[in-house]
């Protein structure tokens, strides 16, 4: 059964905010776990959240991670918070 987008979005936002004190970047698997969904289903939700600007990608070049837009050190370093 396809996941409900609004419901899934809330789950991810809450899930990431809960951990935001210790972590700002998450692996894709962490998001799939929050949704308790198969990776391909989770990917559809995550992609839509990226397109809506709720989540953003982070990459070291070799590994990619996801975070709520604007959280974490990098946003500060690029003066995006000012």
């Amino acid at each position: 059964m396809a996941l409900d987008y609004e419901e899934s979005k809330q789950k991810i936002i809450e899930g990431l905010q809960k951990k935001s004190k210790t972590k700002s970047k998450f692996y894709f698997n962490d998001l799939a776990k929050i949704l308790d969904a198969k990776p391909r289903e989770a990917k559809k939700i995550v992609t839509q959240m990226i397109n809506e600007g709720i989540l953003e990608f982070w990459s070291s070049g070799s590994t990619s991670m996801y975070g709520l837009k604007g959280t974490g050190k990098q946003a500060g370093a690029e003066h995006e918070n000012e």
């Binding site: 990226i50 397109n51 990459s59 070291s60 070049g61 990619s64 990098q74």
Partner: peptide
């Protein structure tokens, strides 16, 4: 060099490797 960051153009999660 600082490690990582921006990853691409809008909608893309790769193709750009951020370096500062």
């Amino acid at each position: 060099w600082k490690h990582g960051g921006i990853v691409g153009v809008f909608g893309y999660g790769g193709g750009v490797i951020g370096r500062y």
